[in-house]
Design a protein around this nucleic acid. Structure first.
Length: 293
DNA sequence: TTCCAGTAAG
DNA sequence: CTTACGGGAA
């Protein structure tokens, strides 16, 4: 039995990691850090299985930051399709422009430089630095937070995200940067495949022998998760409906009164449209709504 | 209903 | 620190 989580995770990851596109050598050779960056944007709150088909098409069209920087927001939103949270598409586009203007078209390696880019936060900045450049940083996503909550803290559910998560992960990382990157990926992989939110397959878990949650007899603990707002009939659904209509429209434009004409709540429909305009996801011009140019 | 390789704004 | 932000699937 290995003595540390890292020592247990590394061989497990080598044997059991999923064959995902952004982990393949040919993917990294072809698209480099840009490929990692694009995949991480798409993976922000969108499940792996939904991202994969869109990722290939995106990179075929815009294989580098300079290519995306030349695109229009309308093209970007069209290509983003139904991945959800379309502000991410705008942020990715803006990040591409920043990379061209501030970094000569090359994705920066420095975490602070990455954090300064549009749409990049604590997770994505360190994911790019670790997985694209091989540097030693704590990469913490929702899977990692759950694995640490259970294996290290003996709790069923993680606390709300905080800066302490980074310190927790940092203490688990080996000194060697290459090994550290694998441990980062392995913690995420474990949380995504075995130690999931709905179940814990401890029989197959490489950390079973040193898991604090298991040793304590799987205490349920306090569930401090907030109830998720209902999507049906929400502003978010209305916004999604407006953008969907415009993605499918010829020239990405429609008469304003034709958009979501059958939506029951007129006030909510107008609020959705106004908020989309405020977010830069929509334009209004003399009775017409269109994707921004 | 809950969850998903989160981020930005209040 | 809390909330808004898509959309699909278990």
């Amino acid at each position: 039995m290995p003595y540390s989580p890292a020592a247990a995770l590394i061989p497990w990851y080598r044997a059991h990691a999923r064959d995902l596109p952004w982990r393949r050598p040919e993917y990294l050779e072809r698209y480099g850090a840009w490929g990692v960056l694009v995949s991480e944007f798409m993976l922000q709150q969108t499940p792996v299985t939904r991202v994969i088909p869109h990722l290939e098409a995106w990179l075929a069209r815009w294989p580098d930051p300079a290519g995306l920087a030349l695109a229009t927001p309308a093209q970007v939103l069209q290509q983003w399709a139904n991945l959800g949270y379309p502000r991410r598409a705008l942020w990715l586009h803006r990040a591409a422009v920043q990379i061209v203007q501030q970094h000569g078209g090359l994705v920066p390696r420095d975490v602070d430089a990455l954090l300064a880019l549009s749409g990049i936060g604590d997770y994505t900045a360190r994911a790019v630095a670790a997985f694209a450049f091989g540097d030693r940083h704590p990469v913490v996503d929702t899977n990692t937070r759950r694995v640490i909550a259970r294996a290290v803290h003996g709790r069923a559910q993680p606390d709300p995200p905080s800066r302490r998560d980074l310190d927790d992960m940092l203490t688990l990382l080996p000194h060697d940067p290459e090994s550290a990157a694998i441990v980062n990926a392995a913690a995420m992989e474990l949380g995504a495949t075995l130690c999931t939110a709905r179940a814990a397959d401890c029989g197959a878990c490489p950390l079973a022998g040193l898991c604090a949650w298991r040793a304590a007899g799987y205490p349920e603990g306090e569930d401090r998760r907030r109830r998720q707002a209902k999507y049906e009939g929400s502003d978010r659904q209305a916004r999604g409906g407006v953008l969907r209509a415009l993605r499918h429209a010829v020239e990405h434009r429609l008469p304003a009164d034709a958009v979501l004409a059958d939506w029951p709540d007129r006030v909510q429909r107008d609020r959705a449209i106004d908020s989309l305009i405020a977010d830069g996801l929509l334009e209004a011009a003399d009775g017409v709504l269109l994707l921004p140019r």
